[in-house]
Amino acid sequence: MATRDVILDAAARVLRERGLANVTTKEIARAAGFSEATLYKHFRDKLELMVAVLHERAPQFIPLLQTLPARAGTGSVREILAELATVCITFYRDGFPMFASIFSDPAIVAAHRERLRAQRLGPHLANEGLAAYLRAEQALGRIAADADPEALAGLVLGACFQHAFIAHFAPEPRDDKEAAAAFIAQLRL
């Protein structure tokens, strides 16, 4: 396995366990079995490493959203939305320790926002990708003509975020797939 991949795997594990603010690059490098200098050969800083973890070691949320519009007309709308919701809930749940660290410091938020902007990425793309899929399904007559794709996208993704948040407080872990399917089944499409 390539050094960068080993570092990303270790960083994903450590960042999810402890959050961005509570871990150093030295600790991440140690967890990966490398020196801190090796880590810096692949990543400018801890924030760049965290962004790479979110994009490369997170559940396949972003790739799924990018391919979603092309899936219009294939399979059941509810099944596709349940698949998306499952991945989304897992992404948000696993990402919360990192997200909390980002939002705990205005400088980190600003740096993260700038890095996402430079890479033409950001959380708004989730809403846009899902809304594009819903518009395509609407054009095929598989979603009500009077439905608002942007509002539905916000509803689905917001509910997934809230489910993931609440899961951190639940005494027993909940199954993301079951929760996603139950939520999607309640939607009036």
Score class of each variant (00 low, 15 high):
143 I>V: 15
59 P>D: 01
158 G>S: 02
179 A>P: 09
97 P>M: 03
92 Y>R: 13
169 F>I: 01
91 F>P: 09
74 T>W: 12
114 E>C: 08
104 S>T: 08
1 M>L: 12
47 L>C: 06
40 Y>M: 01
165 F>G: 09
75 G>Y: 08
13 R>S: 15
47 L>P: 08
135 R>D: 09
173 P>C: 02
52 A>P: 02
34 F>C: 11
10 A>Q: 11
35 S>F: 00
10 A>N: 10
159 A>F: 02
55 H>T: 13
89 I>W: 07
40 Y>V: 03
182 A>M: 08
187 L>N: 06
55 H>R: 14
66 Q>D: 15
103 F>T: 08
103 F>G: 06
54 L>Y: 10
87 V>A: 10
32 A>K: 05
96 F>M: 14
185 A>G: 11
179 A>F: 06
149 P>I: 05
183 F>I: 00
60 Q>P: 05
177 K>R: 15
7 I>C: 02
60 Q>I: 00
171 P>C: 04
27 E>C: 06
139 A>D: 10
29 A>L: 08
186 Q>P: 01
71 R>N: 09
138 Q>F: 01
48 E>Y: 01
188 R>P: 13
168 H>P: 06
180 A>T: 02
101 S>I: 09
70 A>D: 13
11 A>R: 06
146 D>V: 01
178 E>G: 09
30 R>M: 12
134 L>T: 10
125 L>M: 13
87 V>Y: 07
94 D>V: 02
73 G>P: 12
85 A>H: 03
36 E>F: 01
112 H>F: 13
174 R>T: 08
3 T>P: 04
51 V>D: 14
9 D>P: 11
98 M>K: 07
